[in-house]
Write a protein that binds this DNA or RNA. Structure first.
Length: 130
DNA sequence: GCATTGACGAAGG
DNA sequence: CCCTTCGCCAATG
């Protein structure tokens, strides 16, 4: 991925898309992720399901990719795959950052997987009850 | 404009 | 039970 242009330009580009209502998907994902309670986690599929596109969990991941330069900060570290595995950790500033952030929220991580994932799991479709 | 690629997930072998 | 394939859809080459 060649970042020939400043990242903020890319941000503006994607923000423009969302603003023009062409793609609200990204913003929706951010909105949901930002509502994840501290110390809880959710999965890409759960978010996708909440947004009504449960068959497109991959897009959630893609949105997260763009979430890096989103504002306010998106707690992407609280989003893992359905196994509770920190598959996205490689996309953070440092591979350890994701686990570090989770640890600060009392979330135990062993072997790149969230411990007690079932208990910590936060399903927006249920918890948010929309 | 077609082919490839995902921070996923479910299904099939 | 491990591994492969397929679907999903936007982005990128």
């Amino acid at each position: 991925m060649k970042r020939k242009n400043p990242e903020h330009l890319k941000v503006a580009k994607e923000t423009a898309r969302a603003t023009t209502k062409q793609y609200t998907f990204f913003e929706d994902v951010y909105a949901v992720v930002r509502q994840i309670p501290k110390g809880r986690v959710t999965s890409y599929g759960a978010i996708a399901n909440y947004l009504g596109t449960k068959l497109s969990a991959r897009m959630v991941g893609w949105a997260m990719n763009a979430a890096h330069h989103a504002f306010p900060k998106v707690p992407a570290h609280r989003v893992v795959n359905r196994n509770g595995m920190l598959t996205g950790k490689a996309h953070f500033a440092t591979p350890d950052l994701m686990q570090q952030l989770l640890s600060k929220e009392k979330i135990k991580v062993e072997n790149d997987t969230v411990v007690n994932f079932d208990k910590l799991f936060w399903d927006p479709a249920k918890e948010l009850q929309l």
